[in-house]
């Protein structure tokens, strides 16, 4: 077991903290998510550490519950996009020919439309519920994952061991999951960290615009939206979610970097 570098430790610590708080939000948050505990935009006090929001709810509790929603939606969308994107991408690379053409051109078509506008159009006609949000974000993001996994796999499919497997008569399943996937994993894992952060930003953007997570459910983008008017009066309530998003983004990426380094050294042998 090689030593974990300091940067990765910091990243792991913060990421773990965020996920821990998100998972156990119900126990950790001092007040309920929609509970009114004081006046409008009260400064921080011993009762509410971060003060209260635009209608007097405890901001810390809103942040904690909001983190749970944001992280859960982003994580679910990322997993969905990776399952769809990498399976289709690897399949396109292995099968080639018209399958590859149809899938790749389809992805090009979707990617030609700006993601945010596409999502806004879709969400304005669909009911905005969490499953729909996850589905829309996951599908839109899977085009990026498709591109990456196809590019990585195309390099691997020309290796002799893939040809050897084909000559043996192996089916697509073995070639995709046993021959290619283990070798494509490290760039995909690194990309997963990045994609997760993009998903966090995306859901926050949607919520800010009012087409994401709907009130009274809290999420970081929504908290910025509710408290943005306070900035004019010097109320920092809208800045806390921004800080949370930034620190989460950096720490997840520190972890992804470390995982990338570890798995790519695995390529040669068994790195501990």
């Amino acid at each position: 077991m090689s030593r974990i570098p300091v940067s990765a430790l910091i990243g792991l610590g913060f990421t773990g903290l965020y996920f821990f708080v998100a998972i156990f939000a119900g126990w950790i948050a001092p007040y309920g998510m929609a509970e009114v505990v004081g006046g409008v935009w009260e400064p921080s006090s011993s009762q509410s550490w971060l003060g209260t929001d635009s209608i007097g709810r405890d901001l810390l509790s809103r942040m904690i519950y909001g983190g749970r929603t944001t992280i859960a939606v982003a994580a679910a969308a990322t997993v969905l996009s990776f399952v769809i994107g990498s399976i289709l991408g690897l399949t396109a690379a292995v099968l080639g020919g018209w399958v590859d053409q149809v899938l790749s051109r389809g992805v090009d078509l979707v990617m030609a439309i700006p993601t945010l506008i596409f999502a806004l159009v879709v969400l304005s006609v669909m009911p905005v519920t969490l499953p729909i949000l996850i589905l829309v974000m996951g599908l839109l993001d899977s085009t990026r994952v498709f591109r990456l996994s196809r590019a990585v796999a195309v390099d691997i499919t020309v290796m002799d061991y893939i040809e050897a497997a084909r000559l043996r008569g192996e089916g697509g399943g073995w070639i995709v999951f046993r021959e290619i996937l283990p070798n494509a994993l490290s760039p995909l894992v690194a990309e997963m960290g990045l994609r997760f952060i993009f998903a966090v930003l995306f859901i926050s953007t949607l919520s800010f615009l009012g087409l994401g997570v709907q009130p009274p459910l809290a999420d970081w983008g929504g908290i910025v939206k509710e408290n943005k008017d306070g900035i004019v009066y010097g109320i920092p309530a809208a800045l806390y979610p921004a800080i949370a998003i930034a620190t989460l983004a950096i720490s997840v990426n520190l972890v992804a970097d470390w995982v990338l380094g570890r798995t790519s050294s695995l390529k040669g042998g068994r790195g501990g």
Binding site: D160, Y161, G169, E179, N183, L266, K267, G268
Partner: peptide, 24 residues
């Protein structure tokens, strides 16, 4: 080709490095 045809005709490559999956 049938599985028996594939089995009875095997191949060994020049570069053993790329002929084996490094993760197996």
């Amino acid at each position: 080709r049938s599985r028996d045809d594939l089995r009875e005709l095997q191949m060994i490559y020049q570069m053993a490095d790329t002929a084996m999956n490094p993760r197996h």
